[in-house]
Write a protein that binds this DNA or RNA. Structure first.
Length: 646
RNA sequence: GCUAUUGUAGCUCAGGGGUAGAGCACUUCCUUGGUAAGGAAGAGGUCAUGAGUUCAAAUCUCAUCAAUAGCUCCA
């Protein structure tokens, strides 16, 4: 007998060799139907694999990320099986599960697959799934594996196998389709109830552009039709929220090929929005003891040679610009830190001066490959809400904490409720990759983790993801429809103070090296605005939105009253304008709704006589009529809800 | 940067070797209206740019520029 401990702490006894699936059956029919795979002693494996020792067991269903992964990985096999039926002779590369679904890379020979073929492939997959084919695992020797695929003529699988060690190779078979795979897989194909192929694209074999381009088909599957329908609605919703589309519709920003790729042009409304965000942060930073600094857009090449960035990124940057007579070289600045270091060292510093916090909305230019550019999220010229804190080692923790407070304030003000933080620390196996004393690193890593705990943050720690100069904390938000975005970052840096020879005089009258904290709560204004647009679907919070209201006179007779209302509201710093067009009210409302103007003020005979306004809220409909005073109070309250003007 | 697709009016898009189309937006006129589209008329385009093929190119070919998707990359 073996002891199996379940996640709830229960321990039950089973005969040796029992499978997770059988255990599920012993618990309930429903669970047996829904089990996709199992996690045994921390390792995800087939539900049909016998358990030969005592251990901890978690039965995985669709509700577990690992369960979903099993489903999608098995779906990739199912797709390959269907394609082998439809296009015999297809050779297969790799077919993993991904965050949302799966893909399979394949060489179709002379065949060309386009999205027009999806329906027939989906149909075949559904047909095979319904046959309840088992995923049969078998262990094979390297020799057998090589023989099988050389007979099949699949050079991709042969290449994969030749990189594997003998004794660790397994095959999975569904129907006639045999694939090299470490698993795990579903008990059988009947779990796959809803199938959707999403896109087809080229992908180089093993990501190497010197090698053959294979056809990659992306798809997703679900255990219930309803879940697929929900997912498709989500995709539609994501399309509607695309910041590139909304940016155009709401006249926030544009691009011009004459200006150049990846160089955004902020239109008046977008610039206004961005300015409000900047002013908000400036105010918060001022309260937190930051001092604004301003530095030029270019810097001598040597500055970046000193910082070490030239060696690392110089080849992939815009080429230096040179003075006509002296041939001096300058770089468009790709970052602000070296400039700020020079400000720090412009004067001797005492330990009493620290921390010093320099903040700048610094516009930087980085050469991004043309294929990487994407709306406002990936551009070649952008503005960081940058700041560098120069402090003593004993101040790192408090400073870090204070930066977190700023990030949290921003998230709160902009309604990012769901986020996690990722703490990136050194790779313990590879200490030579990093600079700075071991002691400093330990201190910094420990402080960041402590701070995260003290702040009650939901965090994960990832080893080996730290920058070479120090550990960092990144903030990932989940937007209103569940997509993840990386925004702010806080980094501890021992490198630049060293390279720029930054010093302060301690209370021991000796020179010491300060520690630098780089931080950008928004990340970049461009990227942040893009994420914000998608998060709120263009319906910005009232304090931010370029146009807070529009006044809709019922007819020309009430234009005078409309102007009176507007000038009253403007006294309270409320932004809006009047729709003077000779359109019907229904039309004006429709246009204002589409423009996502938060409040529509309808004025006609009744309002003029009573000196009131009739208020309609975007997306909510008629709120009834109220006095101007009450309306401005309503607006003021909503603006202050963001808790930004405290 | 690589591969594929795309580029026609301000926007969304149809068309396609014989000289340009729709809807919305815009202008003017009629209409003066009560919570998501009132009516009419008008104006607006070297069909991304450059070259080639052709009697003739917006249409076919090539190059360039840009966009989109995927790959690779991101201080």
């Amino acid at each position: 007998m073996i002891d199996i401990r379940f996640p709830d702490g229960n321990v039950r006894q089973y005969t040796e060799g029992i499978t997770s699936l059988d255990i599920a059956k012993s618990i309930s029919e429903g669970l047996a139907r829904n089990i996709l795979s199992a996690k045994f002693n921390g390792k995800v494996q087939d539900a049909t694999l016998p358990l030969n020792e005592s251990g901890e067991l978690q039965l995985l269903t669709w509700d577990d990320e690992d369960g979903k992964a099993t489903m999608w990985h098995s779906s990739a096999h199912l797709m390959a099986e269907a394609i082998e039926h439809l296009y015999p002779g297809t050779k297969f590369g790799i077919g993993p599960d991904i965050e949302n679904g799966f893909y399979y890379d394949m060489d179709l020979g002379d065949h060309v697959i386009s999205s027009e073929n999806f329906t027939e492939i989906e149909k075949k997959m559904a047909e095979l799934a319904a046959q309840k084919q088992e995923y049969k695992r078998s262990e094979v020797s390297k020799k057998e594996a090589l023989e099988y695929f050389s007979q099949k003529g699949d050079e991709y699988k042969l290449e994969l196998i030749s990189d594997l060690e003998d004794g660790q190779i397994s095959f999975y078979q569904t129907g006639q389709f045999v694939d090299l795979c470490r698993g795990p897989h579903l008990p059988d194909t009947s779990h796959i109830k809803a199938i959707k192929l999403l896109s087809v694209a080229g992908a180089y074999w093993r990501g190497d552009e010197s090698r053959k381009q294979l056809t990659r088909i992306y798809g997703i599957t679900f255990p219930k039709k309803k879940l697929l329908d929900d997912y498709l609605v989500l995709l539609e919703e994501a399309k509607k929220r695309d910041h590139r589309k909304l940016g155009k519709e709401l006249e926030l920003f544009t691009f011009s090929s004459r200006v150049g790729q990846g160089l955004p042009l902020w239109l008046p409304k977008g610039a206004q929005l961005r300015e409000r965000l900047e002013n908000f942060l400036k105010k918060v930073q001022k309260e937190a003891g930051y001092e604004p600094v301003i530095t030029p857009h270019i810097g001598a090449k040597d500055l970046y040679v000193t910082s070490g960035h030239y060696a690392k990124y110089g080849a992939d940057s815009f080429r230096p610009i040179t003075t006509p007579n002296e041939g001096e070289e300058f770089l468009l600045k790709p970052m602000n830190c070296p400039h700020h270091c020079e400000i720090y060292s412009s004067s001797p510093r005492s330990y009493k001066d620290l921390p010093i916090r320099y903040a700048e909305f610094g516009t930087v230019y980085r050469y991004e490959q043309s294929g990487e550019l994407h709306g406002l999220t990936r551009v070649r010229g952008f503005t960081q809400d940058d700041a560098h804190i120069f402090c003593r080692p004993d101040q790192v923790k408090d400073e870090f904490k204070a930066v977190i407070d700023i990030v949290l304030k921003i998230f709160k003000a902009l309604d990012f409720k769901d986020f996690i933080t990722q703490i990136s620390i050194r790779d313990p196996k590879n200490p030579s990759k990093y600079i700075g004393s071991d002691e400093n690193w330990q201190k910094a890593e420990a402080s960041i983790i402590e701070v995260a705990q003290e702040k009650g943050l939901d965090y994960i720690v990832v080893e080996g993801e730290a920058a070479f100069y120090g550990p960092k904390m990144d903030f990932m938000v989940r937007d209103a429809i569940g997509r993840k975005w990386q925004l702010g970052t806080i980094q501890v840096d021992y490198n630049l103070p060293e390279r720029f020879n930054l010093e302060y005089v301690g209370n021991d009258n000796q020179k010491h090296r300060p520690v630098m904290i780089h931080r950008a709560p928004f990340g970049s204004m461009e990227r942040f605005v893009a994420v914000l647009i998608e998060h709120c679907a263009g319906k910005f919070p009232l304090w931010l939105t370029p146009e807070q209201l529009i006044i809709l006179p019922i007819s020309e007779k009430y234009h005078g009253y409309a102007e009176k209302v507007l000038s009253y509201l403007k006294k309270y710093d409320i932004r809006g304008h009047i729709d003077f067009r000779s359109e019907k009210t229904g039309k004006k409302i429709r246009d204002a709704e589409i423009q996502r103007i938060p409040y529509m003020i309808i004025v006609g005979e009744k309002e003029e006589n009573d000196q009131t306004v009739s208020v309609r809220k975007q997306g909510h409909g008629d709120l009834g009529s109220m006095s101007l005073e009450n309306f401005s109070r309503l607006i003021a309250e909503e603006v202050s809800q963001a808790d930004i003007f405290d």
